[in-house]
């Protein structure tokens, strides 16, 4: 049995999902030979530490750690002080400066800890620096949950499709935009109505600009371009058009001719644009679903789709990254 001491940094929607999933799947992971032990959780109010493993029941009902924290340590201080093997970083994304996640990841990697994250910001801002830091310290940086949520994309390309030359990836990488466009087309309602509906349902944020202006999708394009195409690009290299200009009339005209309009991110073209997609195409998924078509030389086109966001779904991608770190170690050990 391999014991893995995990520190969780960030206790928002995804953080709660991670605690829930790690608890629910602990027995199953033990069968795989991994004892995934959550020894600390940190948020902006403090840290709860338990060497024997955090009792999920004690903290899952708490919105923040204010009432349960056992230490006032925060952020980097907590990462440096707690002797964990792996840090799960799930603080809020900032795509401009990457903080606070960037500092957290740097501290963890520099301290010889693996990092698994769903936080796009640091990767968009400083992917190559973080990757080098991980390599220099002999640890891994995994971020499947940053692009396409629970939909397997990075691991699919890196592992399952290994040996293929990847010509490109195009897809729907933002569930909020997809929901709005789907509802506009179905109900023939203007953008603003579909947006309010999405906000009522909690699918869109009060300030939706990050999603609807295409910023989030462009962040994912940057991550995929850097991680899978070695492109070393920045956010400003992506040509971005959001969905706010799409009208119900445009959707209706397109549908009459057999097309849906979807916000499509394209790597390596580095574009995010509303795009006509044939209605029968496997990437033309509806609702909040994400999808991606991967164009390869040996396998042709592979299409995946799945939920792009959600607490448990994102935690699932994080769990899969955690397991893959230790599986990789085992394979390396053979050679």
């Amino acid at each position: 049995m391999r014991e893995v001491k995990i520190s969780l940094v960030g206790y928002g929607v995804v953080g709660h999902g991670v605690v829930d999933v790690l608890t629910r799947k602990r027995a199953m992971m033990k069968e795989l030979g991994l004892d995934l032990k959550l020894i600390s959780v940190t948020d902006h109010t403090g840290t709860i530490i338990s060497e024997d493993g955090i009792d999920a029941q004690k903290i899952l009902g708490e919105k923040t750690l204010t009432n349960v924290a056992t230490s006032s340590m925060k952020g980097k201080e907590a990462i440096d002080a707690i002797a964990s093997d792996l840090v799960i970083e799930v603080t809020p994304t900032n795509i401009v400066h990457g903080q606070p996640g960037l500092g957290h990841m740097e501290a963890a990697l520099a301290g010889g800890k693996h990092v698994v994250t769903s936080n796009k910001g640091p990767l968009v801002v400083a992917y190559s620096r973080l990757k080098k830091l991980a390599e220099d310290n002999g640890v891994m940086l995994k971020f499947e949950a940053t692009a396409g949520g629970t939909m397997p994309l990075i691991s699919l390309v890196e592992r399952t499709l290994v040996g293929n030359t990847i010509y490109g990836i195009r897809g729907i990488f933002n569930g909020t935009c997809n929901y709005i466009l789907t509802r506009m087309a179905e109900e023939n309602i203007p953008y603003t109505h579909a947006l309010s509906e999405a906000q009522d349902l909690g699918i869109a944020e009060a300030d939706p600009s990050y999603d609807v202006e295409g910023v989030d999708t462009a962040g994912k394009v940057v991550i995929l371009a850097n991680a899978l195409f070695d492109m070393n690009i920045k956010y400003s290299d992506v040509d971005v058009t959001g969905i706010t200009g799409v009208t119900p009339e445009a959707l209706a005209l397109a549908r009459e001719k057999g097309y849906a309009i979807k916000l499509i991110g394209d790597v390596p073209a580095l574009t995010v644009r509303p795009t006509l997609v044939p209605v029968g195409s496997p990437i033309a998924v509806g609702g909040t679903l994400n999808s991606a078509a991967i164009y390869t030389d040996l396998s042709g086109t592979i299409t995946v789709s799945g939920l792009g966001a959600g607490s448990i779904e994102t935690a699932s991608a994080i769990l899969s990254d955690v397991v893959s770190i230790y599986r990789t170690k085992r394979i390396d050990a053979i050679f």
Binding site: A250, L276, V277, P278, I283
Partner: peptide, 12 residues
């Protein structure tokens, strides 16, 4: 004008 182009069948 917002120009909505078709997705291509193949990678460029």
């Amino acid at each position: 004008l917002l120009v909505i182009e078709p997705i291509e069948d193949e990678a460029a």
